[in-house]
Amino acid sequence: MAGINEYIILACILFGLGVIGFLTRRNALILFMSVELMLNSINLMLVTFSASRADMGGQVMVLFIFAVAAAEVAVGLAILICLFKHMKSVDINKFDLLKW
């Protein structure tokens, strides 16, 4: 059975993948997914800590984070749809009306 370290390392790897995805991909939807991946890696971490400390607090936090993440995506996708109507694209390199 895997110990706490393996889970934490896995969570950190997932978080790192999320960060890399956010910084390198150019599709706004993929950026959303990367942020979701980061949040879910944090959830994994919290559950692991919660189990290892025999403290329910971490698992309760996961539920809160689920709810907040869902609300975040709702607002984000709404903004993206409005922008898509103007730009006909989800490529963030094309969103360059505002610069310098």
Partner: peptide, 10 residues
Amino acid sequence: SQEGALKYFL
């Protein structure tokens, strides 16, 4: 407005 908001959001 939409572009600024999307950048802010991301």
